[in-house]
Design a protein around this nucleic acid. Structure first.
Lengths: 344, 344
DNA sequence: GATTAGCACTCCGCGTATGAGAGTGCTAAA
DNA sequence: TTTAGCACTCTCATACGCGGAGTGCTAATC
């Protein structure tokens, strides 16, 4: 059942070669290029074993062998060698770290772009969650009669806005007063606490506006709720350059992820709690990701918690991708410093 | 040089048929199905003429004929019949109009989604411009020491935020004071006016903070500047279902638009000033749009001005698409009512 | 003179055949 | 246990032939 050293070395060589060439690898090429020191016939015997054990697949009788998902799993679990970045890649990363920070959305977009550029795969970034976060500021700005813009700022450094209906007789002064009241009273409370207390507590002082407060709270919860807008994706079309996405149906299947990000959100949400995750092929339960691998790195900074990740074919230089993610996470940390509210 | 009535009718029939079938249409099929009342031989003669005049193309000797871009241009200029929407389509539109409005970004996303759903092509929506718009509110919220979140609300009903550096000794009170000062003084001024006057005028009262005011203004201009975030695109992958995008290279070329929206922005920017525009194939100067047609409808609501549009193959039921755009524009108007600040 | 029927011609697409190439599995020898 | 050799299998590229679809031209017809 166990794989002896030579079988492992052969499997390793096959995976490395296949990641490079995307073509089934045969016994002859293998004996020729790697330093295994055995003939092609021996390798053939071992390959037959490896296929028996489920680590290799033959597309057909006389093609070479292709690593199975089980093989990749073994590869990342035990055979993974970290890799170094080239000077060009380091330069790109350095450049990224020096970017001018405008808003957190820009940071996410830039991060996704850079990550995709570095890996040449699709990159995804999960914005820091706001659920457990604290309120910083609330502002109501009148728009038309009967409607106003509600802006909620959390300590994640993000502003969320929503249009809400307001009573017709509510003027600018009153809106300003309510804004100030909420901000004063609940600054630095978690959103959860605000949701629990606000209507009850302020409802007493503002008896007449109780109904309004309720709808205000609903709008606040809705606009700060984690959702699709928290996911940034970049470079999805880069995958079209790889042979595994030549098939139009499969490409379309994958690209559907770009249109509806809820699936991605669910994916990254879980991954955000881990240092690293590598999900290979069918290990992703999303249909659109069949035949894809997803590698993610979670980050946590102050109260912020999010994740960055890369999506590509299962044939992926996992070591390299992990290294890039590691560097990228560090870079993101640097960039995000400005956004984090001081710990008290 | 002129096309007599029969040539026109034949050309019209060819275009209609080609839009339906996506396959070159021959003289025999044409004489069989349409009510031209002439034999295939006559049609052949006319087709030879039409090809001579540049309205038809033959992929090869014995395929049928395909309409040229010149033919589509003639078609939309003079032969276009408006079409009716089906009950299902009207239902979809009605449903769209009843959507719950949260923020203007949601409106744009929803509009693009619905438009793409209705036409089965890629849809784009240009957010109302803010350039000529007026300031409603400015708010500075402290984040970490030395940084704050700047929020600018315009009368387009949108909030723009940006992280800025602030002097270390500036406290919450002062930030609040400056916010209030700017809001009081410049509410309902155009952003242009604010940019011209603010630093000079307030610089006098706040001598010590002149440098800060300058960087504040820069951040305000930057975050409210029209840019890529103003364009919403939906359903780009729908185009993959059409035979003209089977070619992977072409598909990739087109999908690049999803990644970098500046090109789209430029495209829609010009279109926003027109009631309708139809740009066929090479009439779009963007490379990514070769072989595509872009149909747009501009809208203007209160001070807001934007555009909605559809991108698809040149083989497109232009009449139908125009009708959908017309309805959609009306629907968008209804939905946007809440966002428009009252005229004074 | 315009229209049409007829026919030769062209080109594509498809199915079949064929051969080279690559890789395997098995057997027998080292 | 390893290796050399060989027959076998399967794919891929190329070639060939053939039917189908459509055209252009010519001659007959209205």
């Amino acid at each position: 059942m166990e794989l002896d050293g030579r079988k492992l070395r052969i499997l390793h060589a096959i995976i490395d070669e296949y990641i490079l060439s995307a073509a089934p690898v045969g016994s002859k090429t293998l004996s020729g290029m790697s330093d295994l020191g055995v003939s092609s016939a021996t390798i053939r015997n071992e390959m037959a074993w490896l296929e028996e054990l489920g680590y290799l697949l033959s597309p057909h009788t006389s093609a070479g062998r292709v690593p199975s998902e089980k093989a990749y799993r073994l590869y990342v679990d035990s055979m993974l060698g970290r890799s170094r970045l080239t000077a060009a890649e380091l330069a790109l990363l350095k450049n990224y770290c020096k970017m001018r920070v405008h808003g957190i959305e820009d940071v996410m977009k830039e991060t996704a772009r850079a990550l995709s550029e570095l890996t040449q795969y699709a990159a995804v970034v999960l914005l820091p969650e706001t659920a457990g976060n604290r309120l910083r500021h609330v502002q109501l700005v009148p728009l038309a009669t009967g409607s106003a813009l509600l802006i909620t700022v959390t300590d994640a450094g993000t502003a969320h806005s929503a249009v809400i209906r307001i009573p017709e007789d509510m003027d600018t002064e009153e809106l300003e007063g309510i804004s100030r009241l909420i901000t004063r009273r609940y600054a630095d409370c978690t959103l959860h606490t605000v949701a629990e207390r606000m209507v009850v507590e302020l409802g007493e002082t503002l008896k007449k506006r109780r109904g309004f407060l309720t709808s205000l709270l609903r709008a606040m919860e809705r606009s700060t709720a984690p959702g699709a807008h928290l996911v940034e994706m970049s470079g999805a079309t880069k995958l079209l350059q790889y042979p595994e996405y030549r098939d139009a149906a499969r490409a379309k299947n994958f690209l559907a992820l770009t249109e509806d990000k809820r699936e991605l959100y669910a994916l990254l949400k879980r991954a955000g709690e881990m240092e690293f995750t590598i999900r290979i092929g069918a290990e992703n339960d999303a249909d659109a990701l069949s035949g894809c691998s997803v590698v993610t790195a979670g980050y946590r900074l102050g109260g912020l918690q999010g994740a960055i990740g890369v999506i590509g074919p299962t044939r992926m230089p996992y070591g390299k991708v992990l290294t890039v993610l590691e560097y990228m996470r560090a870079g993101l940390g640097e960039v995000l410093t400005h956004f984090i509210t001081e710990e008290k």
